[in-house]
Design a protein around this nucleic acid. Structure first.
Lengths: 338, 338
DNA sequence: ATCATCCGTGTAATCGATTCCACGGCGTCG
DNA sequence: CGACGCCGTGGAATCGATTACACGGATGAT
């Protein structure tokens, strides 16, 4: 593969001049510029990004560590992150933690070793000492969706409390009183917050949330299924199951179906995170939709601000309730906008 | 950030010795090794992958260019690709083409500029001159799922002809005669092959596939919706719509629903690619399942073989039919294995 | 005792870019 | 007319690793 020296030789100038042309440095004569450009064209020269990064100490690359690629919410987030990053002149390398802290750490390590310019993280756990260390080391970092309290880094996320309150009110109006929630890991902020919002909203309506109605799961389908099975085995099973993410809702649906029960007649279901498939499930699922594209854009911009020396801002955007038929009643069959 | 020189100074040896320890070169004394390791530990030293790559001319990184991250089939593929690559000591950088040839080329360019060791591609179009050029240039490359005829590169894919034949037989048995297909872009192999397999299977049963029953779409939901609308506007609409991928099936479902029709009573639906949601759609969707994990593993192994000087093998694995209720009849409600 | 071999180690070249500094030529200004 | 400054350019240092080569000392064979 042709290097800058070959180009210099072909154009009859020094490598310094070639480099100047490539980086559109002002002091290059029109003639030299033309000759270099011609040589570049003739040789099909492409600058070696590795060498360039070594010298300039920047890679123009962002690392994105998400908790689970198979979760449509995160793939959508990743897609928009890449889109915005590209617009700002950055590439993105995605690391998938699969909700496993040690895999998350592996990816963070690898990304740091590659000297990415900044890190966008949706932590799979709340404890990672590595993450804390990286933040302290001065690596530009921004949390997206989930964050870790005590690590001083901008957070870009959706606030679901309003939407959860709307949901609980909606359920109450439909006559449901025994509500249950499948929670994410207590180590994640989204795991806790959604439970707290749910509990608070219930309390305002004079409803209690017994421990037996809080299922511990891991934001993945299999654990959602198990949590739901435990609910169904209760002497007095809940009338509603609210899954704190879409994959656990899928698991809940699996379990409900395996028990021969129908939604919403026998048991109602709602989920956090709205995805296109929820329109076509049996029945269409009432969900809380996050403004994913806006979140992704805000997160990338915050990170770019931090990298480029500006002051990054934390951003919180509201989520909203999308009512469908899975909780009973007649639904105005809205679609998640896209 | 500490460099190899700092480690050398701390350990009281030369950088060469440090490097030898790090790369477990045999001729280093036990004592020097211990001192270096201690220094590494003390400084929290991590080798700079950029510098290493520049010197060794390898990045231990694979590029994966997929046509659409929002397509669950590809995210699943990506997940398994990363898993296998990690097992073999490689990282993966994903480029999402969004079914747009120019975006695909952008990612390929970027990946090549970064000097990835090999490229795994599921081309969004059949023509990319860049892809041909890259293949010719000697960059290790393997096609996954889709490929480009005329480019001499190993192909790892699923063969759907058997499963499509099973599907058509199944439809025929249920009494359906007017079958339609929503095809992917003619420029993709999967776009064509699936239509051909469908046409052949129909011909064997004495059925014709008129042009009006071939909808042109782009493997994305919106185009699947439009194609379905055209079918429904026909004076004699088809009794079955077979979508050549899962997103177009989603679009078809949208369109059918918008027309107030029911599946399978008014119109039957089947799809290529099986995904977890198909179990829970209304009704559960009959689909053709690919052995995604095996494909991913085989593709990575082929690429690693090529990179490491062994002879890579093309691999073709059979897809299989999973019957559910979306085509009518009583279904043995199988699940896609996972 | 002598010489060849091997082992552990260090010095320095190298990968492919960017960039500081010096230098020659030319225009401008005093 | 001489000095100064600017412009375009090239030489060479640099980024942080790997590795070819050289070297000194120990070991073993003859």
């Amino acid at each position: 593969m042709a290097g800058i020296k070959d180009v210099a030789a072909e154009a009859g100038v020094s490598v310094a001049t070639v480099s100047r042309v490539l980086n559109s440095h002002p002091s290059v004569s029109e003639e030299a510029r033309a000759r270099v450009l011609a040589a570049v064209e003739a040789l099909g020269y492409r600058p070696n990004a590795v060498a360039r990064s070594l010298r300039t100490a920047q890679t123009r690359t962002l690392g994105l560590v998400i908790s689970d690629v198979l979760n449509p919410y995160f793939t959508e987030l990743a897609r928009f992150v890449e889109e915005e990053a590209r617009a700002l002149g950055y590439s993105v390398i995605i690391g998938n933690a699969d909700e496993r802290p040690e895999l998350q750490d592996h990816h963070i390590r690898t990304l740091i070793d590659r000297r990415i310019d900044g890190l966008l993280v949706s932590p799979a756990d709340g404890g990672s000492p590595l993450l804390r260390e990286v933040a302290l080391s001065g690596t530009p970092m921004v949390f997206a969706d989930r964050w870790i309290p005590g690590i001083d880094v901008p957070v870009v996320r959706a606030d679901g409390t309003g939407a959860v309150k709307d949901l609980v009110a909606h359920l109450h109006r439909l006559g449901h009183r025994r509500l249950a929630i499948i929670a994410g890991p207590a180590a994640t902020t989204t795991g806790n917050e959604r439970v707290e919002a749910f509990r608070d909203a219930m309390r305002e309506l004079g409803l209690a949330l017994p421990d037996a109605h809080i299922g511990q799961a891991h934001f993945q389908a299999a654990s959602g299924r198990r949590a739901t099975e435990r609910f169904l085995a209760l002497p007095e099973p809940p009338e509603v199951v609210f899954a704190a993410d879409n994959l656990m809702a899928l698991g809940a649906l699996d379990a409900i179906r395996a028990h021969g029960l129908r939604v919403p007649d026998d048991i109602a279901l709602a989920a956090f995170d709205d995805i296109p498939w929820f329109v076509h499930t049996d029945p269409p699922i009432t969900a809380i939709a996050q403004p994913t594209a806006d979140l992704a854009r805000a997160a990338v911009r915050a990170l770019a601000d931090r990298i480029e020396g500006r002051t990054p801002q934390s951003v919180t955007l509201p989520a909203r309730l999308v009512v469908r038929r899975s909780c009973g009643g007649a639904a105005t069959d809205q679609r998640s906008d896209r």
